[in-house]
């Protein structure tokens, strides 16, 4: 057994610890893992919650050792889920989460925190693609790296992330904040291709480098504090501005689509 340590948020009344039993290749789809869904449930009830692995339904208890501490709590805000181990084949953790907290001491598979509107997810590892997809509120912290389509939209949809905040300590893949409309993404390292693609609101700050930032940008703010390795030919240089005590070059675009987004960059090749 474990205890709710004093370090935990004072508000936490119920702690659910999930320890993966073994590694597997076929991913588990576990959007059921979110605080609101565990409220009012005991160990055996949580163990018998159904998740999908491939085309079969299995019980959560066959994937994880489940421990529950604290009194049942109908107040979803005070529930904390701790995944103690590797979840890199567990998709959709915290999808549509509204409140409470999830901590993963390991990496997570795709769609972690997708469509979440409240609460907090801390990933002490890497996040696979589509973390925070179509996020509306709340907070995601990735201590490692994030993959492609961080805080992005769904295929065909015109609105991606609309609110909340995503912080990645490491780097992120391609298309960060694709179709972003609100909220904030902060990347400690570098990103791949086309961050802020189709963005129409919100703010992305990249501490490291980026390639072709701001394609199809309509509005919103995109900051690249490292190097822009390649620049689009469809942004207008507006002059220099000091932002967070660094002098940055300010551009507007993407003019290819008549956009008026703001792109701040530190250095670019040959402009």
């Amino acid at each position: 057994m474990f205890r709710i340590r004093s370090k935990s948020k004072p508000g936490v009344k119920m702690l659910v610890k999930l320890t993966p039993k073994k590694a597997f290749n076929i991913p588990v789809e576990a959007e059921v893992i979110k605080p609101g869904n565990f409220a009012g449930k005991g160990k055996s009830e949580i163990e018998s919650i159904i998740v999908w692995q491939g085309n079969k339904e299995v019980m959560l208890g066959s994937i994880f050792d489940v421990e529950v501490e604290g009194v049942d709590d109908k107040d979803k805000k005070k529930i904390k889920i701790l995944i103690e181990g590797d979840a890199s084949r567990i998709k959709r953790i915290g999808e549509r989460m509204t409140s409470g907290e999830i901590i993963i001491n390991g990496s997570v598979d795709m769609h972690c925190g997708a469509l979440m509107s409240g609460g907090k997810i801390i990933i002490n590892g890497d996040a696979d693609a589509w973390a925070g997809r179509e996020m509306r509120g709340g907070e995601i912290v990735v201590e490692g790296n994030a993959s492609n389509y961080l805080g992005a939209g769904y295929w065909g949809a015109e609105k991606g992330m609309r609110g909340g905040i995503i912080r990645v300590k490491g780097s992120a893949g391609n298309y960060v904040g694709e179709h972003m409309r609100g909220g904030e993404i902060i990347i400690g390292g570098s990103v791949g291709l086309l961050p802020g693609l189709n963005m129409s609101g919100g703010k992305i700050v990249i501490e490291g480098d980026a390639v072709l930032p701001g394609g199809e940008m309509k509005s919103g703010m995109l900051v690249v504090k490292g190097k822009v390795l390649e620049m689009l030919p469809s942004f207008r240089f507006e002059g220099k501005e000091v932002l967070d005590s660094i002098e940055l070059k300010k551009f507007t675009g993407d003019l290819a689509r008549g956009g008026s987004g703001t792109l701040y960059i530190n250095s670019i090749p040959e402009v």
Binding site: L194, G215, P233, S234, F235, D254, L255, A256
Partner: peptide
């Protein structure tokens, strides 16, 4: 390809002045 297409579009949109001498 992406950059060349963006350049063509920005020229079409009448803001070709921002396009560098070669893309």
């Amino acid at each position: 390809d992406y950059r060349v297409l963006s350049a063509l579009r920005v020229i079409l949109a009448g803001a070709g002045d921002v396009v560098p001498s070669s893309v």
